[in-house]
Amino acid sequence: MTHASSHTAHDGAHYLPQQQPDSDGQAEILDLDAEVLAEHIASITAWLPLETTPRHIVDLGCGTGAGTFALLTRFPEARVTAVDASASHLNRLRARAETLGLADRVRTVPADLDADWPELGRPELVWASASMHHMADPDRALREAHDLLAPGGLFAVVELADFPRFLPADAPKERPGLEERCHAALAHHGTEHVSHRGADWGPKLAAAGFTVEGERTITVNVDSSGSKAVGAYALSSLKLLRAGAAHALTAEDLDALDQLLDADSPFSVLRRSDLAVRTERTVWAARRA
Rank of each mutant, 00 (worst) to 15 (best):
T2F: 12
L60I: 09
A276G: 01
Q259I: 00
G101R: 06
Y15G: 08
G65Y: 04
S129P: 06
V109D: 05
V106M: 02
L93T: 01
L270S: 05
D170I: 06
H56L: 10
F155L: 15
S23Q: 04
P151A: 11
A248S: 15
T211K: 06
A248G: 13
A289F: 03
A82D: 01
A207D: 12
R107D: 13
I218R: 02
A4H: 12
H133A: 14
A263F: 07
L249K: 04
D114Q: 04
A78W: 00
R197S: 15
P172I: 11
E124K: 10
P138M: 07
A161E: 01
V158L: 14
L249W: 05
E51R: 14
T64N: 03
A243V: 09
D253V: 10
Q20A: 14
S236K: 10
V126S: 00
A169I: 10
A130V: 11
G231Q: 05
N221E: 14
L186Q: 04
A256E: 06
R278K: 13
T211Q: 06
I29Q: 07
T250F: 05
R288K: 15
A34K: 05
A87K: 07
H247M: 08
T8A: 14
Q20G: 09
G214C: 06
D84Q: 03
T8V: 08
C62N: 02
E179N: 08
A115T: 12
F155T: 02
V106Q: 01
E28Q: 15
D255W: 06
D162F: 13
L167D: 06
D258N: 15
G202H: 07
D112P: 06
A156S: 13
P151T: 12
E98Y: 02
K228V: 12
D223A: 08
P172C: 12
R287G: 00
A248H: 13
P17Q: 03
D253E: 15
E215V: 14
T68R: 02
D162W: 12
G231C: 08
A184C: 04
W284V: 02
A38F: 04
R105Q: 09
E119A: 15
L102I: 10
A246C: 03
F267G: 00
T219E: 14
D223C: 02
A82F: 04
H89A: 15
R181K: 11
S129D: 09
D147K: 06
S227Y: 00
S224N: 09
D262G: 02
M135Y: 08
